[in-house]
Simulated scan of single mutants.
Amino acid sequence: MPLSGDPHIVILVEGRSDAAAVAVLLSAHGLDGEGWVKLVPMGGVTNVARDLLKSREEHPEAVVLGLYDLAEQRYVLGALQRSGVPLEAPVDLVEHGFFVCDSDLEDELIRAVGTAAVEDALDELGHLEGFRTFQYQPEWRDRSLNDQLHRFAGSGSGRKVALAERLAVRLDAATTPPPLAGLLERVMQHLDASTPSHP
């Protein structure tokens, strides 16, 4: 069991927007108290080997979990193999605590809440007018609304993080995307096992 003050769980995510969304859900489920969970934005999945090793060195008693994009699975596989985890094909990385987003977490969130809710969130953030202008750019005019929202969410300083938070608060048990639902369930399982006082 981790020492007092050490996290019981470390969660590796690609960037700040992923961390923002996961933090909202951890808080909503009462899983962010007492320093139980440490979120680590890696600044890109290519850093997963470094941050996996660092997390295990700094918190040897903690369980390391993570989110990753399907197209970047090879980086997670390589990181786990280099850390000494025996992996054989075919590999289900869920068994090792890593949950896959079909495209990326932003796409999962947009599909989960629906495009109308995303436009509502953009309106709350004061970005809806900018999005309408973006939609008429020649290279995006004929793309699907989902694609337009996904691209717009990733542009602009701070927009990606703020929108991720606004979309995460709109999720409920029925709409939480599978990778996030699986991650939350694994967090709860480990906290129940390692924290007697955890409800």
Rank of each mutant, 00 (worst) to 15 (best):
G33W: 09
G33N: 13
E34W: 13
V37I: 14
V37T: 07
L39D: 11
P41Y: 10
P41W: 12
G44H: 09
G44R: 05
V45W: 10
T46Y: 05
N47W: 05
N47V: 07
V48I: 13
V48F: 09
A49F: 09
R50P: 06
R50Y: 04
R50K: 11
R50C: 11
L53T: 14
L53P: 04
K54Q: 14
R56Q: 15
P60C: 14
A62D: 10
A62T: 06
A62M: 12
V63G: 05
V63A: 14
V63R: 14
L65A: 05
G66I: 12
G66R: 14
L67G: 09
Y68F: 11
D69I: 11
L70V: 09
E72M: 15
R74T: 02
V76E: 01
V76P: 03
V76L: 00
L77D: 06
G78S: 04
Q81E: 15
G84A: 08
G84M: 10
P86G: 11
P86F: 02
L87G: 06
E88T: 03
P90E: 02
V91P: 01
D92P: 01
L93C: 01
E95R: 08
E95G: 06
H96L: 05
F99C: 08
C101I: 08
D104R: 08
D104A: 14
L105A: 04
E106F: 01
D107Y: 01
E108L: 02
L109A: 00
L109Y: 02
I110G: 00
R111W: 00
R111D: 01
V113C: 00
V113N: 00
V113S: 05
G114S: 07
G114F: 02
G114K: 01
G114E: 07
T115P: 01
V118A: 00
E119I: 09
E119Q: 15
D120F: 05
D120S: 08
A121H: 07
A121C: 04
L122P: 02
L122Q: 08
L122A: 03
D123G: 00
D123H: 04
L125K: 04
L125N: 00
H127Y: 01
L128V: 03
F131D: 04
R132M: 13
R132L: 15
R132T: 07
T133S: 10
T133A: 15
T133Q: 14
F134N: 03
Q135L: 10
Y136R: 15
Q137C: 10
P138R: 04
P138K: 07
D142V: 02
S144M: 06
